[in-house]
Design a binder for these strands. Structure first.
Length: 285
DNA sequence: CCCACGACCTGTGGGC
DNA sequence: TGCCCACAGGTCGTGG
């Protein structure tokens, strides 16, 4: 599920049930996700008050009143489900229409208000840990991250500096979290399409004016996806029963062989760095 | 340092 | 129906 917009959507969904709540119970059903969970993981969570729920790049970061922060990355298939106490659902909470396979529910949290939050992750590429809040910025997960694409430090000058001299193609370069933090395979394809930049072009060989456009399209595509509630590629419904069905229509991602929305030439799929890239060879140069 | 590639793990969908 | 392969939203470690 998760690129930046999806993680942000999860953050917004979880914040109302977590922020200001005390964790009455925590359970780790296995000792590891992608990496080993820290020593006494559940015990260190139990009794802690969640001060806030933040996002940095694709990480969720929850500072606790114990001085530690719970840090979670959803990997490829991680998802949180809120099982709100019956009758207490509020707007902003959500569940997935297709219930996750319970055999892959690895972490369960219960708040002092009676809400239950489950972390499910079949592929187990996700990870969680506890880091002293004061040490977050220096931690290996965060120290080398580039700027937030929706923040003020992400602009054309940043990209021209980071791209200077790079022979690597721009697609792979934009996936490098040290250059911009939070982009993933889908939104890189979409932003390059909107910028008319070929994914095969060397990052160091993009004119300044096009980098300006690229920063704009990156922001736009992320903001639109966040507004749409994150593109989970699956339907989800809001707890209050509103028709929450969401189908984000990508322009190129996953559309091999379909006509380019601009010029009708077929969208092409290529492999770069072992991952699929979708683009229009006529529009993107 | 830069870059390409395999590894991690499970599920799903297409082709035969 | 069953089997096998390719592929999936991300990162990390290794080796050139």
């Amino acid at each position: 599920m998760p690129e930046l917009p999806e993680v942000e959507t999860v953050r917004r969904g979880l914040a109302p049930v977590l922020e200001g709540r005390r964790l009455k119970r925590a359970q780790a059903r296995r000792p590891d996700l992608r990496f080993a969970l820290p020593e006494r993981f559940a015990a260190r969570l139990e009794g802690a008050k969640v001060l806030k729920l933040d996002r940095r790049a694709k990480y969720l970061v929850a500072p606790l009143d114990t001085g530690e922060s719970l840090v979670a990355h959803l990997g490829m298939s991680g998802r949180f489900t809120i099982l709100a106490k019956r009758g207490t659902e509020r707007p902003g909470e959500f569940y997935y229409a297709d219930a996750p396979d319970p055999t892959h529910t690895h972490v369960v949290l219960e708040t002092d208000r009676g809400d239950r939050i489950e972390y499910n992750d079949p592929r187990r590429f996700g990870y969680m840990t506890l880091i002293p809040t004061d040490d977050l910025e220096a931690h290996a997960y965060f120290a080398s991250l580039g700027p937030e694409p929706l923040g003020n430090a992400f602009h054309a000058e940043h990209l021209s500096g980071a791209f200077a001299g790079k022979k690597q193609n721009v697609k792979a370069t934009l996936l490098d979290q040290r250059i911009v933090a939070g982009l993933g395979n889908i939104y890189v394809c979409e932003a390059l399409f909107r910028s008319s930049i070929s994914p095969k072009r060397a990052a160091g060989r993009i004119a300044a004016a096009r980098l300006e456009l690229l920063t704009t399209t990156v922001r736009d595509v992320l903001n639109e996806a966040i507004e749409a509630g994150g593109s989970t590629l699956r339907d989800y419904a809001t707890v209050d029963g509103a028709l929450g069905y969401f189908q984000h229509r990508f322009k190129v991602y996953g559309r091999e062989g379909e006509p380019c929305p601009t010029c009708a030439a077929p969208i092409v799929r290529i492999v770069q760095g072992g991952r699929s890239t979708f683009y229009c060879p006529k529009c993107q140069r």
